[in-house]
């Protein structure tokens, strides 16, 4: 690994107090390093990985970063995560692209999660792009999740900088008592485009989901947030889409909630607008300039 690789990895990783239990680092389409543990196995398959977490694994941290530094690569990876009964893991996945040339460079991570009864998963996904070339940096992640009885999953996904085009698709089916929490944060600028699609099926008694999307669209960038929550039984679904637009930025929110049972409780909230004048005034009255105040408001909104 050279300095660029290390810097890219740093941008998309997450500091954890405990040591990493298992990891797989993928660079320009091939695995460059891998470590497994007694409880967590990472096995290669054609175009991807099979990750197995044993039942009752008390606490495991898995890192599976992807970095791309060669302009023009179109990388697709299929990773399946099998999380055993009552296991508790943190999975840090992310992709960083460094593109110094004119060729379009992309990564699509197709991730499937099979989460067994009582298991707990925290999934952290960071996306980042950089480089001096004008070749586009494109990331199109697909996440499909099946959550068995009383399992819990929290997804924190962040796209802060440098990704020209992205289409994120997240599909989940939740059975009895399962809980899925998603926090998504996206910032786009220049002419970047970002689309995010969610389809959550609440197919078990007392299944619940809480989705919070915060996005900032600056310059001429465009974002689209489409969420669909289907309640098939007594369940709870809450979707919150908050967006700040600036300059000629545009954000479109397309809500769909579909209750198929009278005990399904589904809510969708969306608020899109520029930074409120009174927020700027308050921070300016404490000594910040208008530009500094704007920066703080956006940073804290996405933090």
């Amino acid at each position: 690994m050279n300095e660029t690789d290390k810097e890219l990895l740093e941008k998309i990783s997450e500091q954890t107090k405990e040591p990493i239990s298992a990891y797989n680092i993928r660079k320009n389409g091939t695995c460059i390093d891998r470590k497994v543990s007694d409880y967590i196995n990472i096995a290669a398959k054609e175009h991807g990985l099979e990750i197995y977490v044993k039942e009752n694994t008390l606490f495991g941290i898995i890192h599976i970063p992807v970095i791309i530094t060669q302009s023009g690569i179109k990388d697709i990876v299929y990773n399946d995560f099998h999380i055993g009964k009552n296991a508790n893991v943190i999975i840090v996945a992310g992709c960083g692209i460094h593109n110094d040339d004119k060729h379009e460079t992309s990564h699509s991570g197709i991730h499937r999660f099979f989460i067994a009864e009582g298991a707990k998963v925290k999934y952290i996904e960071k996306h980042y792009g950089e480089g001096s070339g004008n070749g586009k940096k494109i990331l199109n992640p697909v996440t499909e999740i099946k959550m068995q009885k009383n399992s819990k999953m929290t997804i924190n996904s962040v796209q802060i900088k440098g990704v020209d085009d992205t289409k994120r698709v997240t599909k989940a089916t939740l059975y009895d008592g399962a809980t899925l929490t998603i926090n998504e944060k996206i910032l786009t600028n220049n002419n970047q485009k970002a689309k995010s699609e969610f389809e959550i099926i609440l197919d078990g008694l007392d299944a619940s989901t809480h989705i919070v999307s915060r996005s900032v669209a600056i310059d001429k960038s465009y974002q689209e947030f489409a969420s669909k929550v289907i309640g098939k039984t007594k369940c709870y679904g809450h979707v919150e889409c908050d967006a700040i637009i600036k300059d000629e930025g545009m954000v479109r929110s397309i809500p769909e909630v579909f209750a198929q049972d009278t005990s399904a409780n589904l809510i969708h909230e969306a608020a899109i607008g520029k930074i409120a004048g009174e927020e700027l005034l308050k921070l300016m009255s404490l000594g910040l300039t208008e530009k500094e105040a704007e920066k703080v408001i956006i940073e804290e909104f996405l933090k």
Binding site: R214, E278, K282, L286, G287, L288, F301
Partner: peptide
């Protein structure tokens, strides 16, 4: 901003709501 730097402070009648900004961060600013 210039007046704030000169030493003026203003407590608003209706406090401003923020999304994301914490109490600690406000006190830092």
């Amino acid at each position: 901003t210039e007046r704030a730097k000169l030493g003026f402070g203003y407590a608003f009648q209706t406090p401003t709501l923020f999304k994301g900004l914490t109490v600690w961060e406000l006190l830092n600013i």
